[in-house]
Design a protein around this nucleic acid. Structure first.
Length: 249
DNA sequence: GAGAATGAAAA
DNA sequence: TTTTCATTCTC
């Protein structure tokens, strides 16, 4: 990945040289490091691709876009005491400026008007999501596969039918199917699940709890009764018949 | 986003 | 035991 990254940025430095520069900065990184410092002489030698390379490396730590900032002061005598910082923009542009203390070093006041922003924010490159970032959909169960396979068939035979009606029809059909047919779809579901786990060994079903983000309405008593009147299912929801089972989002 | 079905899986 | 979420697509 690193070499690939360095090649991608096409710096005047070789990939190994870029890695070497990064290693000198990497020592500053601890779990809570948000900003790192760079010596002016180092930064002056960097070309833009090299800066992007370093920014990219640091981004993978802070998981945010980062930018180079220079506090840009030179003493009257010409002594260069410029300091460079690399970190997320919020650390440099917070209203009224803010104190940044890097790894126990001197505090640095970064006023938006004073700190010279040397390079534009380096946006997070769009990289293919890692396996852990991919949202893996839940494997379908036997009925879902059965419904999926027959959905188009039912729809073409009854063009005006609604999806809810298709679900009702196929729900009844499913309950009337022979054991062989149901077993066939059960095996298919197991195959799909096996393939999913092979591709994503860490996959685990993680349903959100009712207080997380959105609540789904519980299956209404009436709809369940309707279904039961045609094809009873082993309902596992207590039939409270309160009529107020619909929950707001 | 709800709804209509079923069922696996988590809490 | 209860809830979510896989599928599909209309409202």
């Amino acid at each position: 990945m690193s070499e690939e990254l360095a090649n991608h940025y096409r710096s005047i430095y070789s990939p190994s040289e870029l890695e070497e520069i990064w290693r000198t900065l990497e020592v500053q990184i601890h779990p809570f490091t948000q900003v790192i410092t760079l010596e002016d002489k180092v930064v002056r030698r960097l070309d833009e691709p090299a800066k992007r390379f370093l920014a990219h490396k640091f981004m993978s730590h802070v998981m945010q876009s980062v930018m180079f900032v220079c506090d840009g002061t030179s003493t009257p005598g010409g002594t260069n005491n410029k300091r460079w910082f690399l970190g997320p923009p919020k650390f440099f542009t917070a209203g009224g400026g803010m104190v940044i203390k890097v790894n126990g070093g001197d505090a640095f006041w970064a006023f938006p008007s004073e700190a010279r922003i040397q390079t534009a924010t380096v946006p997070m490159p769009i990289l293919p999501p890692t396996n852990s970032q991919v949202r893996v959909p839940r494997p379908p169960n036997a009925y879902i596969l059965y419904r999926k396979e027959r959905h188009t068939l039912v729809k073409s035979a009854n063009p005006d039918i609604t999806n809810n009606e298709i679900s009702q029809i196929l729900g009844r059909a499913w309950n009337m199917e022979s054991k062989e047919v149901r077993d066939h779809y059960k095996e298919m579901a197991e195959d799909v699940k096996r393939a999913l786990l092979e591709k994503h060994p860490d996959y685990q079903y993680r349903p959100r709890r009712p207080n997380e983000k959105r609540k789904r309405s519980r299956r209404s008593t009436r709809s369940r009764d309707d279904a039961n009147s045609h094809s009873p299912r082993n309902g596992n929801i207590a039939d409270t018949s309160t009529g107020d089972e619909m929950e707001a989002i």
